[in-house]
Design a protein around this nucleic acid. Structure first.
Length: 200
DNA sequence: CAAGAGATCATCT
DNA sequence: GATGATCTCTTGA
């Protein structure tokens, strides 16, 4: 719907760019997940950037540990972690090796495989299927087994379907009040007018 | 509609 | 032993 031209899988070079640019440019692209015989796709409508060891909201600010190791690795890999013992969060690792940075995918507009998403989420409400980082991982069957997975592979990747550039808003990141001066950075990017955001 | 509680576990101190 | 880059449900205006 509204797509023009062929779908192009984003190459690794896309993720090697500055994290804020990647976070901005992921909006309007399509996250594709192939799992078993099911394909689910959502249009990315909300992202957040986590950048380097000085950003106190970034997990890597606590150093290079087993958990954060993936963020220090190559751009274009998935950083997936379990949060609050219940939900998973999906990030795309960005920038160069040894520089820890990533973009959190915060919300999707369901596009393909909607019945499967409804079944996985246990709700019929379209607006609740993927409007949050934990929700979208549940809807797309993304868990820690995908930590370190290649986003330029065939099970989990992002496509440019030729949509026109969206109108974008910036806001402070969610849930990082502990991050001192870094909590006010406007590193959250939203597609203006989308009704599938985690919050307006 | 807003606010609060509770759920549950991998990771790190 | 403490702590979350969350979500859902309940309560009460």
């Amino acid at each position: 719907m509204g797509s023009i031209g062929p779908a192009v899988k984003l190459p690794r070079s896309f993720y090697e760019q500055a994290t804020l640019k990647v976070a901005r440019q992921l909006l309007g692209k399509y996250l594709v997940r192939k799992h078993g015989r099911g394909v689910t796709v959502g249009r990315i409508v909300e992202t957040e950037a986590y950048i380097g060891t000085r950003d106190q909201a970034c997990h890597a600010s606590r150093g290079r540990t087993r958990r954060t190791e993936v963020m220090f690795g190559a751009a274009g890999t998935a950083y997936v972690y379990l949060i609050y013992g219940f939900y998973h969060c999906l990030n795309a690792v960005t920038e160069r090796v040894d520089y820890p940075a990533a973009v959190l995918i915060r919300a999707l507009e369901p596009v393909e495989g909607i019945p499967l998403m409804r079944a996985r989420r246990g709700t019929e409400d379209l607006r609740s299927l993927a409007s949050g980082p934990g929700k979208l991982c549940q809807a797309l069957a993304i868990d820690r087994s995908l930590n370190g997975a290649d986003l330029c592979g065939s099970h989990l990747y992002v496509e440019d379907r030729g949509d026109p550039d969206p109108s974008i808003l910036r806001a402070p990141r969610i849930g990082v009040d502990y991050a001192g001066p870094w909590k006010d950075k406007r590193w959250r990017f939203l597609m203006r007018g989308s009704s599938f955001l985690s919050r307006p």
